[in-house]
Amino acid sequence: MSTAVTDNDLTVCSVLSGNRNFEGRIHPECKMNFLASPPLVVAYALAGSLHVNLLEDPLGTGADGQPVYLRDIWPTEAEITDVVGAHLKAEMFTKSYSDVFTGDEHWRNLDVPSGDTFEWAPDSTYVRQPPYFDGMTVEPPPVADITDARVLAKLGDSVTTDHISPAGAIIPDTPAGKYLLEHGIERKDFNSYGSRRGNHEVMIRGTFANIRLRNQLAPDTEGGWTPRLQPTRRVRHHHLRRVGQLRGRRHPAGGARGQGVRVRLVA
């Protein structure tokens, strides 16, 4: 399936009722995800395609050989109310949450260090102490000019923080995947970007992991990672404001000069 998607430049879609509707979260090669209610997710699964009109096209064929439509299986408001009233009880929640902090056997048997502060594990691939505050003093240093900096002024109107801070699966041949392999983590234990969000080494390598982004900030190097997915037929180039080395500028709005950069977004 993966080969068919990449070789034929297919736009693969999903329908879901959760909040994982950003590109690449359901699957790295799933470009479009649509939010729907849980019954509609089931309906589309029965139909097996998004190229259907659920109001007019049948979802399938019944045992009697007749077409079955969404209106035939959609519950009425009365049926929903009866089921909720009969099965949703307050004691279900009080019982479940009464020992929510107890955890299972694995949780209770974890070796927890003592002390009032978190004990960082330098070899952890899940939670690492970030270097952002190294060398920070109690009193901030005086304001100084920014030199030799490159600034991204704009990344397209449809790009969100979720695109540049991924939460989906980690692919082995990406920078993040190679980092984990180099640290002895097997592919089956990669987990996801969301679970390894506490490791800055993984996250900075995942900046361009989203299938909608193409890294044009730096040229490809020998042995470097090249995205497996090629741009689709519809491509927009969101040119960033021409920015380059800022010399003696206190703010990007003050002007910039030099070589610009751009990011390619697959529409």
Rank of each mutant, 00 (worst) to 15 (best):
Y179D: 00
D82P: 00
A43Y: 08
C13D: 11
P140S: 09
P58F: 01
V52N: 02
R257G: 14
F22S: 11
N19Y: 12
P130R: 09
P231V: 05
S96N: 08
H106S: 08
A169W: 02
L265T: 06
L229H: 07
W120Q: 08
D7H: 13
C30F: 01
V235G: 05
P227S: 08
H200N: 06
I211Y: 02
V127Y: 07
H200G: 04
S17L: 04
A209L: 01
H106W: 15
L54Y: 07
N19V: 12
D111T: 09
H251A: 14
V138H: 15
V266E: 09
Y69P: 06
R264N: 07
K154G: 09
R150V: 06
L240P: 02
R262K: 12
S165Y: 12
G184V: 04
R128S: 10
S37T: 15
R250S: 11
G62Y: 05
A149N: 11
S17D: 09
H239L: 15
Q259D: 10
I80V: 10
V263E: 08
P38R: 04
G48T: 06
T207V: 15
V263T: 04
N199A: 03
R187V: 11
T174D: 10
D145M: 12
G156E: 01
R150Y: 12
L40N: 08
G85T: 03
A36M: 07
P38K: 02
N191D: 14
P122E: 14
S195F: 10
I185Y: 00
A78D: 09
R214F: 13
G48W: 10
P75N: 02
V112R: 10
L54W: 08
D99H: 08
M32C: 10
P172L: 02
N19E: 12
A256M: 09
E201D: 14
V15T: 05
G255L: 03
A144H: 15
H251V: 07
H183D: 05
R242H: 13
S192C: 07
K154S: 15
P142N: 14
P131I: 12
E23G: 14
L155V: 11
L240G: 09
L50A: 03
G60P: 00
A169Y: 06
F133W: 13
D7E: 15
S124D: 05
V235H: 07
V15S: 00
M92R: 06
S114R: 14
R20W: 07
Q245I: 14
T76Y: 04
G194Y: 08
I185T: 06
S49P: 06
D220N: 11
G254V: 08
I211V: 13
L181I: 12
G260S: 14
Y193L: 00
Q216T: 15
L50H: 09
L50D: 10
H163V: 00
A4P: 10
K154W: 10
P219H: 03
G223N: 05
W225Q: 09
